[in-house]
Design a protein around this nucleic acid. Structure first.
Lengths: 204, 204
DNA sequence: CCAAATCCTGACCGAACGGTCAGCTACGGT
DNA sequence: ACCGTAGCTGACCGTTCGGTCAGGATTTGG
């Protein structure tokens, strides 16, 4: 059955192409025809591999949402601890780095796509995450810090992925994001960041 | 005159409804029929007031983009100064507070709508803004701080507009946003931020 | 060799899209 | 009374949408 792998699996390539187009144009704006053309297949072929446009979206998002559930399900109660929170931020940034496009869709189009099961799951996880942060101190200030940090980080990553410009090293971006989000989430103790902080270093 | 809800001018109400739907669903996802239904008019009536769907979007965004140009055009050179940068952040947050939905569209759908003139103008302004920030110190760290701050602030505002839980006072949100974005943009001088009470109430 | 399964496609469908147009009503100016 | 115009609408047009279906290739197993 699985003798040779001549090229990347069609379903996998379709997922990747669809994900890209769902971010560039929106889910509603990206048509099956565009996805098929971009992947080099016919529209019928797309619907052979995936029962519907919605199924294609779900199939493309499922790995990310599963990992999100794993990440939050395992450490949703331990965010209160100051030290472990830093570790969580690092994990979360890595999650965003791995699933830039998926995160972008969930964040920016999550509201209108809340009816789709996988999206709904993701939104529940995020709500639970926000709740575990807010249970400790639910001041407006704290909530805004968390919102700006997480949404801002996700946006910067997802946009840099689809856009031309920046070709910074991933490690640099990762370190900077971990630093700034840690600073936002835990305002008091910035100094305890174990990541190499490079303040104001010129690249050229 | 025997219509159900409309008290304001038809064109103005159509702009408002369209703006809301363009954010909730995307520009591509919101149809003229939906907009017309939501506003209590027929699709033909929408196209009587606005030449096309694109013209409707432009008409709805123009005030915000004009103000953005005014804001950036007048103060693109003084951002380098540390003290005036704080004032600029305050102005910018007020801009975001006044034009939440418009900012959300420009940020989240700007890439796919770059061909539309008004959107293009807005994106040029933002590029110039980022450039004026980056000219001083273009480290990866700094660029990410700015990106997270501005995008995060805009996202938090735009989402809170269409979402639940609005019991936060506007002034509280404003103060918190100004504080956190100032902290992100000017990492050194965090301690003393004087938030002047500027009336951000303007009838439109 | 044949049958079954896999992959892929063009032709086609009803619905919805953005947009055009002729015509309706209401009303102010003369 | 008349007319012009502003506001609004239903009917209609061509196109594209997501989705169905029958069937052409190609491979595989017996």
């Amino acid at each position: 059955m699985s003798h040779a792998a001549p090229r990347t699996e069609p379903a996998e390539e379709l997922r990747a192409v669809a994900l890209r187009l769902f971010v560039e144009t929106s889910y509603a704006g990206a048509s099956l025809q565009q996805i098929a053309d971009a992947a080099g297949y016919s529209k019928s072929s797309v619907l052979y591999h995936f029962a519907s446009k919605e199924a294609l979206l779900e199939s493309a998002l499922t790995p990310a949402v599963d990992k999100l559930g794993l990440l939050l399900g395992g450490s949703v109660g331990r965010i209160a601890d100051e030290a472990q929170r830093a570790a969580f931020v690092e994990e979360f940034i890595d999650f965003l780095l791995e699933y830039k496009l998926e995160a972008h869709i969930i964040i920016n189009q999550g509201q209108s796509l809340a009816g789709i099961p996988t999206i709904g799951r993701a939104r529940e996880w995020i709500t639970r995450l926000a709740g575990s942060f807010g249970s400790e101190m639910s001041s407006v200030n704290q909530r805004i810090r968390i919102g700006v940090g997480l949404a801002g980080a996700a946006y910067v990553l997802a946009t840099s992925a689809g856009d031309t410009t920046v070709h910074d090293s991933i490690d640099e971006v990762r370190a900077a994001l971990i630093e700034v989000v840690s600073e936002l989430v835990s305002p008091s103790s910035v100094s305890t960041i174990s990541v190499t902080a490079t303040p104001n270093r010129l690249t050229t």
